[in-house]
C-alpha cells in the first residue's frame, strides 16, 4: 500500500502530509528561537550595562531589505508554478538563492568586523578598544608571544574616546606598540566579550544556518529537484510551497532580530 495524502489533501483536515509536517517543525522552531529570545531578555535585565550601537544600522537595514525581497521572490515563484510557468519559477527562485547568498556574505563581513576589533588590557591596568595593524583575525595574547609570526610587537590603534563603539569617529588616540610583555589580556570582540555579543552571535549564527539550509533546499528545487515538475507537477508545487513556508519563517525571525540586536 502507498502512503496516502502525500499529494492530495486529506478531506477532514484539508491538508497534505508535508504541510502538516512543516508546520509542526516550525512550531518547534518557534520554541527554539523563543527560548533564545527569553534568554536575551533575562541576560539583558540582569546585565550591569547593555551596549548600544555596536552594530552598523545601515548594513543591518540592507540585510533586512534583502531578506524581505527574498521572501517576495519565493512567494512569486510559487505563484508562477500555480500558473504553470516553470521558467518564471526558475527566474524568481534563482533570485532567492542570490539574495540568500548576499545576506550570508554581508553577515560574514559583519562577523569579520567583530573578530578584527580588539579589547586590550595593558599590564599597567589601562583598558583600550581598537584595531591591530593589518587587521589580523581573532588574536589573543598568545599570538603576541609567538614571535615567529610577526616579530616582537604589533601596532594598536585605539578607537576614539567615547567608549564602546558609540561614535567611533573623531580624533583617534595615539597608536601603541603591543608586546607580549606589556599586554595582560587581548581579545577580539567575539562572543566571549560580553553577554550581548554572546547572544548576538548565537542568534544570528543560528539564523544564518537556517538561511544557508533553506538556500540549499531552494537551490536543489531550482536545479535537479525541478525534474519532478514533469513527472508530478502537483507534488513539486507542494514541495516549493513547504520550503517557502520555511523561508518566510526565517525571514520572520530576522524581522525581530534586527530591531532587537541592532537598534535597541
Amino acid at each position: 500500500m502507498d502512503i496516502p495524502h502525500t499529494v492530495e489533501a486529506r478531506p477532514d483536515t484539508g491538508l497534505y502530509n508535508a504541510k502538516v509536517g512543516i508546520w509542526l517543525f516550525l512550531a518547534s522552531e518557534v520554541m527554539l528561537f523563543g527560548a533564545l529570545f527569553s534568554s536575551y531578555i533575562l541576560l539583558r535585565v540582569g546585565a550591569e550595562a547593555w551596549p548600544h550601537g555596536l552594530l552598523s544600522v545601515p548594513i543591518g537595514t540592507f540585510n533586512t531589505v534583502v531578506l524581505i525581497t527574498s521572501s517576495i521572490t519565493v512567494v512569486l515563484a510559487w505563484a508562477s508554478l500555480k500558473l504553470g510557468d516553470l521558467s518564471r519559477f526558475k527566474l524568481y527562485q534563482g533570485c532567492t538563492v542570490l539574495l540568500a547568498l548576499t545576506f550570508v556574505a554581508v553577515k560574514s563581513f559583519e562577523y569579520r568586523d567583530k573578530f578584527t576589533h580588539y579589547y586590550v588590557r595593558l599590564q599597567d591596568g589601562t583598558e583600550l578598544n581598537g584595531h591591530l595593524a593589518g587587521n589580523p583575525l581573532n588574536w589573543t595574547a598568545a599570538n603576541l608571544a609567538d614571535t615567529n609570526r610577526v616579530g616582537a610587537s604589533i601596532t594598536f590603534h585605539p578607537d576614539a574616546a567615547g567608549g564602546e563603539g558609540e561614535g567611533a569617529h573623531g580624533g583617534h588616540a595615539e597608536p601603541i606598540e603591543l608586546t607580549a610583555a606589556n599586554v595582560a589580556k587581548l581579545e577580539s570582540w567575539g562572543p566571549w566579550r560580553s553577554t550581548y555579543l554572546a547572544i548576538y552571535f548565537t542568534l544570528t549564527g543560528l539564523h544564518a544556518l537556517h538561511v544557508i539550509g533553506g538556500a540549499l533546499v531552494i537551490a536543489y528545487l531550482w536545479g535537479p529537484g525541478s525534474r519532478m515538475w514533469r513527472s508530478d507537477p502537483e507534488r513539486f508545487t507542494n514541495r516549493v510551497e513547504v520550503c517557502g513556508l520555511f523561508w518566510h519563517f526565517v525571514d520572520l525571525v530576522w524581522i525581530f532580530l534586527f530591531p532587537v540586536l541592532y537598534l535597541l
Binding site: 512550531a27 518547534s28 522552531e29 520554541m31 527554539l32 528561537f33 523563543g34 527560548a35 533564545l36 527569553s38 534568554s39 541576560l43 567575539g190 562572543p191 566571549w192 560580553s194 553577554t195 554572546a198 547572544i199 552571535f201 548565537t202 543560528l206
Partner: peptide, 23 residues
C-alpha cells in the same frame, strides 16, 4: 515543543564550554 528550549540551552552551554562565553 519542550525539547527545543533545551537545544537552545545546550547550544549556549556548548559555547560557554568551547568559546568562553558567559551565558
Amino acid at each position: 515543543l519542550a525539547f527545543p528550549p533545551l537545544e537552545a540551552a545546550g547550544i549556549m552551554q556548548l559555547m560557554d564550554n568551547l568559546l568562553g562565553t558567559s551565558f
